[in-house]
Amino acid sequence: MTAPALPRPSTATTMAKVVGLLALAYLLYWLPTFYKASQVGTFIRVMTLVLAAMGLNMLTGYTGQISVGHGAFYGIGAYSVAILVGEYEWGHFPALAVGVALSFVVGMAIGIPALRIRGMYLALVTLGLAALFPQILQRFSDITGGTQGMRVSKFEAPEGSGLANDQWQYYVILAFVVVAFVLVRNGVRSRPGRAMVAIRDNEIAAEVMGVRLSAYKVLVFGISAALAGLGGGLLVFNTNYVSANSFTIELSILILVMVVLGGVATPWGPVIGAVLVVYIPEWLPKDIPLLDVEGSALGPVLFAAVLILLMAVAPDGIMGLVRRIKGWALRQRRAPDVPGPGPNDSVPSH
């Protein structure tokens, strides 16, 4: 006897999704052909932060652990590329590979002691790392340039491509983001992904089902750190410059805000979150009445308030809101014959 087939999404929904994705693909292709280099630089910053937020989403959204140190892993990636390219004249891609590997190893090394006990302690250890990272940069300022920063040679477009450097950088980084997005999206829907969610929802039950808790938690943290390192490394492809002031605890917390604001445990959440966290401060008015500050200084306060508020009223972020509206719309349509909650109505577990 065969199991009844799962209801397939209607053709219209599938078509809408395909059209949406094609439109998005065209938009992403078109952006650097229209905007000037400085704005393309901002797009690139957003994309690299999407990578970091995607990594953190694997950890926070799917596995239920918090890291306050992803800014530091982002920094490890950035400085690996900066030092290897700037001081030792490596190629950009080998340097990037080292940066990713180093983030992975450091992530595992500090994740092991923290993850053997409860989830909160990972936040503690990563907070320590985030505070220590600027000190390390300062201690080795003869290589890192400390707060003065250091310059790195350009990542140039190949001859004959017909692209400006910033456009070439944009498309290369976009390729990384797309590949990482697909890998993460498919990964979390596969067997390891189910195991991660099981750990988040009930550690003991997951362990009883045969999920190796420590191995999964430490490995996920390593991968999550490596994605942040990838983002940081790619950032330097465009900025040609790093400074110790850029990788603060505030950055780490903002990456956490991106994940929570967009919606934890959703593939698109980190993307939406990163876009909003980068652009909202730029949209704030320049002069705030009654306060002697620039609007952008209010950005972090606003994000902190949003983070607290979301935790209090809507822990599933913007994507959760979308899901709820969808569920509501479905119920409206089916209202005559299907009373009671619809299938999409289930409350996310945290």
């Binding site: 918090i66 306050v68 936040a123 605890i249 505030e250 917390i253 903002l254 956490l256 805000v257 929570v260 972090p300 306060v301 994000f303 902190a304 308030a305 983070l307 607290i308 935790m311 209090a312």
Partner: peptide, 8 residues
């Protein structure tokens, strides 16, 4: 997460 928000 809320205490981290308060931090910021």
């Amino acid at each position: 997460m809320v205490t981290i928000g308060l931090f910021l």
